[in-house]
Amino acid sequence: MARELTQAIVNGILIGGVYALMAVGLTLIFGVLDIINIAQGVLVILGAYLSYSLFNKAHIDPYIGLLITIPAMFIIGVAIHWAFISRLRGSERTSMTLLVTYAVGLIIEGILYKVYGANNVQISPSYIDSSAHVLGFYIGWVYIWGFVIAVALVGAVYVLLYRTRFGRSVRAIMQNGDAARLVGINVNKVAAITFGVGVAVTAAGGMVFGETNAFNANSGYDLISRLLSIIILGGMGSVGGALGAAVFMLTLESVVTIWQPTWAIAVYYAALVIILLWRPAGLFGQKAVRAQ
């Protein structure tokens, strides 16, 4: 029993790292731009399909392929922001972005469906089933490397946000967009780059997701609801919060699965509701990050 529990916790932490990677993009986009990017789930799947194609067609290892997919997703993100999101105005802007990104997601999903069909696929390089033997536990290398990459990229986003000049202007916009514009920050440019970075990390998240799960064009919907829960729980706009919340939630789900596989997801969402009632700003959010 204790052994199963430990295994479940370890799995939960490792998978949680991957979810954190996908959620960091969402929380960044939300925190800076006040945008709910419903397309994030589909973008993760797009990232997974990019890695899948590079691996199957060009025989490029998914990890090396990241050197191609991350810049590609960055460009896609900047393009989406430039074409659609930067054009929205008015008092209902946040709700409008939700709908616009939903429409963008529909289009991307339709294209993926057209190109790849409805069958589930999985990125399966030769080492997919090999696992490390640590202290009597078997842990898949895919999960370990996924976790390492996730933590490295989340760390990179953290450094970008808190240790660079660019990050300072991002945080200035988070605090007060009008004041940031007054002191000479090019809000539009920073917003576009932030959206690009938020989408770029989905390339890595999607790659690991595609190695550990079978997916098709529809898989984005289940993902986006989980990712939204994670960023709300972590406190919107908080990078560390997203990591903490992702690890917490996925560990919880993984542990509950031991006893009750069918209800594990319900426990996940019920935990979210309970925690939010207790702390409306999320587990790690400061109350004043954004007005509730």
Partner: peptide, 13 residues
């Protein structure tokens, strides 16, 4: 459209 159409109104939130 607001008086500053060149940038998204981030503060609306």
């Amino acid at each position: 459209p607001s008086a500053t159409p060149s940038a998204p109104s981030v503060s609306s939130g």
